[in-house]
Nucleic acid binder design. Structure first.
Lengths: 297, 297
DNA sequence: TTAATAGTGTCTGTGAGACAGTATCAA
DNA sequence: TTGATACTGTCTCACAGACACTATTAA
């Protein structure tokens, strides 16, 4: 029995490096009369000229997921200005001149939640969140004001105190992703929920799907748990993220038998009621072999 | 036995949408004296002002993979200008004002190779390449001339005629990824190979790893094959991409028994020698259940 | 004939899923 | 006591891997 040594979408660390481009389009006919000359001059090694390429704004958007009261929830902030004034959106902001994309995402995450990001080198024994790049969204019409390319990131965090945004609790909330992603969905009070601003519905859907598939073959589900947790608590994370019920006995046998996944701390707890349960923390393994299997249909 | 309905990194289609950001940083102290005010004004709904955000150039870079003579190869182009003049690099170019990221990547791919991209809606029965977003690289120092964010894409193509770049064959080649990714590697003539320009070594490594893992749980390996192919030819694709030897008998039983993976065309061929082999084309299935397993170690 | 590739059958070990049964707490 | 959760054991079926064997071509 084998399983890959690497994941389809590792949370890669950027290395210092430089621009990529060809030595010029194969279709080399000059394109005149354009506002921007599409980098032809840039390609030909002329000195830097800001008018030689179209300017973009670059932002990071965050899909911050957690498990609260048996439901997968995403952080949402209310927009205070047009466009989409008053609608819910994903947190995010501009990438600064001097920071990497991952740094920008970590900074926004800290500003919104106070969470620090796990050191990817150290084992996941400190408190903090998991952060990885998700995908980039650059449709020309995604912002009516200007051309904006957004590098979306996915963050997974344990259950947190109520969020704050600019100090105003009514402008930030943890919302169950089931409600947010339903077309014409309704909140728990039965009121209709307006769709998310911009293309954030798609970004959230992509982030949720990434989390759902990644906990299959990695130990990432532990990022939703406190530093010490029981097998039952970990099972409830899988059940909330996948929206299914799992057999507690087979789950227990599976996770405790997967090498490197869980390390017993020696302690026990009865915080879930019933017989005292062993406490574990996340082991060093990041890839599960064999993987957890998500039940079909 | 179950397997997920979705992949960890679906090739998502961008929907039309808009910008994401918060209603302002929680740490709301004014930041004066900066060249760019980091979007605070933008966040507060003031009218559009180009000086309110740092300008970026946005490019697409391409990891174009194919299988040639039992080796996984990547398209490389030689740089004609500084920086990294004379070094090999990945093909790519600027995103234009009016095009989506996927459109820009498809345009660059057509310019470099003449390949068209598969219609994701139609079954993979037409000729063409597979194209998906890979990851985005935005380290502030990755280009010495200016701040450039590159949205890397991964393309998989059948074996092609020799490439051209700007009509000059000596400035483009298919290079085995084993050679390109070796540190201080050597070409087949024993000459040392200079590392790729910019951060393209990392981008290529990420693209290769994505391809290696994705052919496990999807039918993507058929993107390396001509429209009609034999089981043996498909097996040689897996062997080249993974760099392993597979048991021909178990492989045959596995791929022909996976529903939706292969559809027999009725024809046969002896182009590989030996007993005539059935010809197949790719079936409609994009996800394999159960997956192909990459041999351990 | 040999050599090559194509394709089938058969055995064995691993592991997922189903589920019986026991253990240890609170109320 | 009931009821909750924790945990162990056992059975069965599916399937990956190993490999013997047959089939059909070219040289």
């Amino acid at each position: 029995m084998t399983w890959p040594e690497t994941m389809p979408d590792d949370n890669r660390e950027q290395t210092v490096g430089l621009l990529a481009h060809t030595s010029g389009p194969a279709t080399g006919a000059p394109r005149e009369g354009r506002v921007y000359r599409q980098g032809d001059d840039y390609d030909r090694g002329m000195s830097y000229d800001p008018s030689a390429f179209p300017p973009f704004a670059v932002t990071v958007d965050l899909v911050v997921l957690t498990v609260r009261s048996h439901a997968l929830c995403s952080l949402a902030v209310r927009r205070g200005e047009p466009p989409f004034q008053g609608r819910w959106a994903l947190p995010g902001g501009f990438v600064r001149e001097d920071e990497d994309l991952a740094q920008a995402a970590a900074r926004e995450l800290a500003e919104e939640t106070g969470l620090r990001v796990h050191d990817p080198a150290a084992p996941a024994q400190d408190d903090g969140a998991h952060l990885e790049q998700l995908a980039t969204y650059g449709d020309p019409g995604r912002d009516p004001r200007m051309r904006v390319v957004s590098v979306a990131h996915l963050a997974l965090a344990p259950d947190l105190p109520a969020p704050r945004a600019g100090g105003d609790a009514s402008n930030a909330r943890w919302a169950p992703v089931g409600e947010m992603l339903e077309r014409g969905g309704h909140g728990r009070d039965g009121e209709p929920v307006a769709p998310l601003a911009f293309d954030h519905h798609q970004i959230l859907a992509d982030g949720v799907e990434r989390a759902r598939s990644k906990i299959e073959y990695s130990s990432l589900a532990t990022a939703f748990c406190p530093p010490e947790f029981t097998v039952g608590e970990l099972r409830r994370v899988y059940e909330a993220v996948w929206g299914v019920a799992l057999d507690p006995r087979n789950f227990h046998r599976k996770v405790t038998g997967t090498p490197g996944f869980l390390v017993p701390t020696g302690g026990t707890t009865t915080r879930q009621g019933g017989r005292p349960a062993q406490l574990f923390r996340a082991g060093g393994a990041t890839l599960l072999n064999p993987p957890m299997l998500r039940p079909e249909v």
